[in-house]
Design a protein around this nucleic acid. Sequence first.
RNA 1: GCGCUCGUAGCUCAGUUGGAUAGAGUGUUGGCCUCCGAAGCCAAAGGUCGUGGGUUCGACUCCCGCCGAGCGCGCCA
Length: 583
Amino acid sequence: MKQIINDLIAQALLELEQAAQIPPDLGHNVQVTPSKEPGQGDYASNIALMLAKSAAMPPRELAQLIADRIAGADAIGRIEVAGPGFINFFLASDASQSVINRILQQGEDFGRSRMGQGSRIQVEFVSANPTGPLHVGHGRGAAYGATLANLLSFVGYDVQREYYVNDAGRQMHILGTSTWLRYLELCGEEIDFPSNGYQGDYVWDIAADLHRENAERFHRPAAQAFADVSADAPAGDKEKHIDDLIDNAHGLLGEDEYGIIFDHALNTLVEVIRTDLHAFGVDFDRWFSERSLNDEGLIETAVTRLQDNGYVYEQGGALWFRSTDFGDEKDRVVRRENGQTTYFASDIAYHMNKFDRGFDKVINVWGADHHGYIARVKASLTALGYTADDLEIHLVQFANLFEKGEKISMSTRSGEFVTLRQLREDVGRDAARFFYVMRKSEHHMDFDLDLAREQSSDNPVYYLQYAHARICSVQRQCSEKGIEASAGPLNLACLDNSHEKALVKHLSLLPERIESAARRREPHLVVNYLRELANHFHSWYNAHQFIVDDAELRDARLALAAAVGQVMRNGLNLLGVGAPEKM
RNA sequence: GCGCUCGUAGCUCAGUUGGAUAGAGUGUUGGCCUCCGAAGCCAAAGGUCGUGGGUUCGACUCCCGCCGAGCGCGCCA
């Protein structure tokens, strides 16, 4: 519809130009937006205001010229000039009401579009270190990424969902060693658990598994594990302390046995994460291992390519990438003095690999604490010869959890955190998914646990679900009473009260609102749309009876209600929220 | 100190990329079930859009300066 009006305006401008009523070459950046007020028609354009200056003509006069050219077109019922020079379009009522038939006919496909034209887009999200179960801090990225991927897929992109598993590096060794130490305790050894180790109960679980399957195989005296280990905090350096313990674990167990423990901890946690996410309605097409980058020599390839392109130099025994050439604040080390490549080097290789896989667009969803890495990653892509703009990074701000008005503080290392699983079991999957995406993702948000938990009208997710359940209930009433829609086409023209007109118009907006949400990467726009839809529906419901004696009117109203239900389902489905038939 | 993200009703937040009288929810106050689900509807009240300039027909939106909040500034991952 928007496009039709767009074309009408462009055509009018062309005609005016040819009639020499306006100067040529004004540029036709036509903007048409849905009107907010019913008194301002269905759609409005500010074109006259935009062009008034270059046309050297008062905006209202120009608007009138354009309006006169368009008046009488099909689909347009009425057209008028208003305010400082807006052109308001009132659609012919049959044109707007036809959306009901379209929705019922297209069903779950209503709102789909071909905007993406099948181009390949990758969304990488969550990617939390597998050093513990996911906590509520990861939930927002999971919900945002999953919803964004759903949206992009719905508007015609070929979407791949990926999780980057950080299965290399020091944090993983800390986890492996933490597991081993707990195992030793299960073997009867008495130890002082390192302050910098992972202290959560899940480490005990993994150690217990290990002990069940391997008995005493990895048992070494605690005295040996702690031999020559420097002091722990507060007296000593907790980082040095844990590093010494890791070295001892390697030495005492040998690479093979150490590897068994390490892999067991890693695999268990990846599986825990995968299961939790699945229960949260979030699934991935690929789990990409950081270690595989090294195994396949991709890190070397990336560093060599940077070197060949002349962006690498040596200093202090380390290899540096000159990212400052591309706007980064400082240069970055890719290979340390000790010969090991850095995490950043892995990241370069990973992104190189993403583009080599042929994606047209790559989207990363990161926690806001990673914003400092954007410049260097983009710099590396430019240096490798890729188009850095094809990498989009979206930051998701943290959600502060509130309970009884108090902020809940958390720390992964100490094991004091609310897990995503606990949240889901507490407030339910629907409320959790909904709460995470109802705010703009780049804004800080407060997650009110009491509110999410509440099974009452205060909880916004029920407002939408209730609208859907109400519609289903009406449909149940009909079948119980043996009411069936009469054969033949619907007479939608009898849907003529203000509630019905507003509702019909809102339904017709879904496709463009979905496209807008996808284009802007802002799933919360879908939430806003559905909330408005529910509002229009509830108002209508309260003002009018659907099941009336007049069969023609009843059929039309039931069709409208069914269309609302369909759109609500489609929208909630994108959000990963259920649309219950009863509550 | 430098950089990033922000600042809108008492509280939590929208505001369709510069448009018409800045909107919801919640909270407060008052009304609506003899009727398809009251987890709903209707109404009242609540604002110097942090602040001071600038850009223009028009600024919550764009630019600059201040004030305030969160985060980031490792040869950690």
